[in-house]
């Protein structure tokens, strides 16, 4: 199969993820959409690795996975503590960044 098709798939996944981040309010869903975007990137990296015939892309994909794992740890912790204090996981309820 033509590796370019993987790139199309990656773009589609990224677009789905981005749309999810923008339109969903639930923090968990937003979070999952971010993961989706990260994985779309990973897919693109791996596809490029294949296309160009070197391993750089695959290595970066590993890095991304590590970062994503770390992010999940921190992010879920924040969401849980937010839910505890506000009894809601909606991102719009937590507009704390505005003074």
């Amino acid at each position: 199969m033509n590796p370019v098709n993987y790139l199309y798939l990656a773009a589609l996944l990224f677009a789905i993820g981005a749309t999810g981040v923008l339109i969903r309010r639930n923090a968990i869903v937003v979070f999952m959409c971010i993961e989706l975007m990260l994985n779309a990137c990973n897919l693109a990296f791996v596809a490029f690795s294949r296309l160009h015939g070197n391993l750089d892309g695959q290595i970066i994909a590993f890095f991304t996975m590590v970062v994503a794992a770390a992010e999940v740890v921190v992010g879920l912790a924040i969401i849980v503590s937010l839910f505890r204090s506000r009894h809601s996981a909606s991102v719009d309820d937590a507009s704390l960044m505005k003074l």
Binding site: V21, L22, I23, V91, D92, S95, L96, M97
Partner: peptide, 11 residues
């Protein structure tokens, strides 16, 4: 513009 909504920042 700094409304504090994470999603508008994302936009």
């Amino acid at each position: 513009m700094q409304n504090g909504y994470a999603r508008s920042y994302a936009v």
